[in-house]
């Protein structure tokens, strides 16, 4: 206990005297860890673990985040401290005063260390006698959360700056400079000219076409249909229609005799029990199918007429099952 106290006080002194910001944070970790050890010794186990979780795990990490976010230098900082005299005087005075007071109050009282408390007792107390402070504390945590968020957002609750110039009116897209307006007008006239040109060309082409059609209609006469030509056309286009299409099976393929449906049906004189065949044949089938060139259906067909008892005895690699067991399986 004395050693833990020495560690706590020593690293606490380093926290307040170190000239490295980050090192001060890590000395704070050591000091708080030693205090957590003191809590353990004094029988407040729950408080010790909450101390480790909240202080060492959260508060110190938050402080180190703040150290990083304020761009603190890694090395020692010169201007961290005020002049030592008043602080040392007041600190020493507080230390001596408190130490004298408490030492006088407790003198040489001995006490036996209490049994380590557990979370159950603490929970009974928190939710029994101290439930109102507990709820108030939860509301306070919520308020602290909201307050931290409001503080760190500059757009919430910001007063308007009286000395700032009045806010500019929103940007008008039609309010352009003279150069941009001239360029837009030039582009518009160019587009209008191009459209007129295209329309003119189209009208000319339509007029020429109409004139040609009128001349053709004047010249042409309906020709009599040649029966020979008609038959040739029938032949050609009929052959075109009869040609095999892509994606459909042709007539020759449909009539191919190599594909016979239903060939995998094996003729048997008696139906086999599927369970027995599968049980008896599983290892052998695997091995022989690795060797290849053996179709599974053939295997079943070969091995089927043999009696099963004989197969089981004939293979040494399979442990022989007792007869009663085998019958039970079947």
């Amino acid at each position: 206990m004395l050693a833990l106290g020495l560690i706590a006080v020593g690293s606490g002194a380093l926290v307040v005297t170190s000239s490295h910001l980050v090192r001060a944070g890590f000395y704070l970790v050591v000091s708080l860890g030693a205090i957590a050890g003191l809590y353990l010794v004094l029988g407040a186990e729950m408080v010790a673990w909450v101390q480790v979780l909240v202080y060492v795990g959260a508060v110190v990490v938050l402080l180190l985040f703040a150290v990083m976010l304020t761009r603190a230098p890694i090395g020692p900082s010169r201007d961290l401290d005020r002049p030592i005299a008043p602080a040392a005087i007041i600190g020493a005075g507080v230390g001596f005063g408190l130490t004298a007071l408490l030492a006088d109050a407790f003198r040489w009282t001995e006490f036996e260390l209490p049994p380590p408390g557990n979370a159950e007792r603490v929970g009974e107390q928190v939710f029994g006698a101290w439930v109102l402070p507990f709820e108030v504390l939860s509301i306070l945590l919520l308020a602290a959360l909201v307050g931290a968020i409001v503080l760190s957002r500059p757009d919430l609750g910001a007063r308007p700056d009286p000395s700032a110039p009045p806010p500019e009116p929103p940007h008008d897209p039609t309010d352009e400079s003279a150069e941009v307006v001239a360029r837009l007008e030039r582009i518009a006239t160019r587009q209008a000219a191009a459209q007129a040109r295209v329309r003119q060309a189209r009208a000319d082409a339509l007029a020429a076409e109409a004139a040609a059609a009128a001349a053709e209609a004047a010249e042409a006469e309906p020709e009599p249909v040649d029966p020979l030509k008609q038959r040739a056309a029938d032949l050609i286009f009929g052959a075109h229609d009869a040609r095999p299409k892509i994606g459909e099976p042709g007539e020759a393929e449909i009539l191919d005799s190599r594909i016979i449906p239903g060939e995998s049906v094996i003729e048997r004189d008696e139906p086999i029990e599927p369970r027995r065949a599968i049980e008896g044949e599983r290892p052998t089938t695997g091995r022989r199918s690795i060797e290849g060139n053996v179709i599974e259906g053939d295997l079943v067909e070969e091995k089927r007429p043999q009696p099963e008892r004989e197969k089981l005895e004939g293979r040494p690699e399979r442990p022989a099952l007792p007869a009663g067991d085998d019958k039970e399986e079947q």
Binding site: G12, L101, W108, T109
Partner: peptide, 19 residues
């Protein structure tokens, strides 16, 4: 265990904090 030990440790820590 002397009762004074944790109290003195605590008062020293408090003095360090004030400092």
């Amino acid at each position: 265990m002397h009762a004074v030990i944790p109290y003195v440790i605590a008062s020293l820590l408090f003095a360090l904090g004030v400092y």
